[in-house]
Write a protein that binds this DNA or RNA. Sequence first.
DNA 1: CATCCTTTGAAGGCT
DNA 2: AGCCTTCAAAGGATG
Length: 549
Amino acid sequence: MPQLNGGGGDDLGANDELISFKDEGEQEEKISENVSAERDLDDVKSSLVNESENNSSSSDSEQTERRPQPRSDLESYEKHREYFAEALRRQQDGGFFKSPHYPGYPFLMIPDLTNHYLSNGSLSPSARTYLQMKWPLLDVPAAATLKDSRSPTPGHLSNKVPVVQHPHHMHPLTPLITYSNDHFSPTSPPSHLSPDILDPKTGIPRTPHPSELSPYYPLSPGAVGQIAHPLSWLVPQQGQPMYSIPTAGFRNPYPALAMNPSMSSLVSSRFPPHVSPAIKQEPSSDSTGHSVHPKSPVVVKKEEEKKPHVKKPLNAFMLYMKEMRAKVVAECTLKESAAINQILGRKWHSLTREEQAKYYELARKERQLHSQLYPGWSARDNYGKRKKRRRDDKQKDLPEETFQSHPKKQCIAYMPPEKMCDSPASSHGSMLDSPATPTAALASPAAPAPTHSEQAQPLSLTTRPEGRARPPFSVPSKSSAPPSSSSSGSTHPSSSLHQSTPLLSRPIPFSSLPPSMLSPPTSFHQVALHSHHALLQSQPLSLVTKSND
DNA sequence: CATCCTTTGAAGGCT
DNA sequence: AGCCTTCAAAGGATG
């Protein structure tokens, strides 16, 4: 599926996995893994065939391909994942997938999303977005709506949970997807089905030669704002793009960047074209280096305000949060982000090393992309962008580590409502262990990942109150911090506040185990984990992270 | 309306 | 080197 291929040499191609078939061998392997559950596949197949027979309204006689149901019957991509996997395989073998969705465009290219299923079997938001881009008629329920029957949507939430994830509510990794060069137009069929790629004579899709591919996102200036749906995904939230997408039309993006097509599509779609890659270039100089008129502070200030705010790339946890938030929100009665984030924080710790590694890798690519787009950008640039220095103020107010004087509401307020969900208080623990969390070790793919035990175990389940009395397994966070544990953990604001009272608690033994021993989990530390877990669970847990005592 | 809350991770500045 | 601060997302709560 060439039009989905990000093109060769895309070292940023997080999405290569997703939609390109560069490494067919690998793809094949993944696919075969995916379809190895023959029984499921058979079920799906027969189900699809039956449904197809019942619903077949098309007169196509070419039933050589079993196919998923048209929109109304295709409940979800997930449901038919095996089918799609097989279709994909066939496609890679040179065949085509016959789409029932587009009468005029009989063939549909199947994206390989086999690696983008979440653990719950649903597609990742980025994959959803992709699907919605490519298959606008396909109902792809948002994660929030994919809850299985055991977690019915609370009535009061039902009208707030999007049936289909809003395009703008996309996963930040979406830009990493090697979107095809085509894009949607409200009035035209998806371009991947466009006659452009159909052989004009036979009507059969052909594989466009790379040279035939139009420039990625060949939008005319101003087109962005005119295309509501398909491109609105470019603007994540509240009209605010991930990396400040301007309303202005595209200009020639970043000639300085040697970008491959997929990269340029990202640039033109997501990153502010008028932000120079060398963002720190002297603003008072024009492109020729000539000095321009010195500007008054007011003008400079205005221009600064005009300047798009290039945000920090999302880190692994942020990416995870984006992906999982909707799900957690849907499963809980909670809506408050602070509480949700606590849950997510704990869930994050419960992820396996591999699961986390995925996000670290994606975050790394985000950063890489970001740094290529904005070589001169510094996180420092955004300092002060927030309205206020709340913590500065707070710390001025708070003499020392006097949590007790913490005036704000406490998480404890969230305890009751979420028994049903994976609340921070419900099982293993608070995030207070986070300061010692070694996840930073994963920051680089090359870096040794934290041990499975470190991740899977609740770590220090000590909540703030208990935390003050040190848990048996704990050691001061600094003493045995695993390689690198980086400041990360101990650096976030709340933990900073807590630093004088080491809460935490990281179990000693596992952190020093060699990774080979830790992953996959051995019976040894599974047992250990279990006992540790049991111990911790026996302790009263609280969401209170900042106790008053 | 602006800010806080809450999480983890990354980055930069400071000591 | 290690510590500290800020920001990234999110959206209800709060002042």
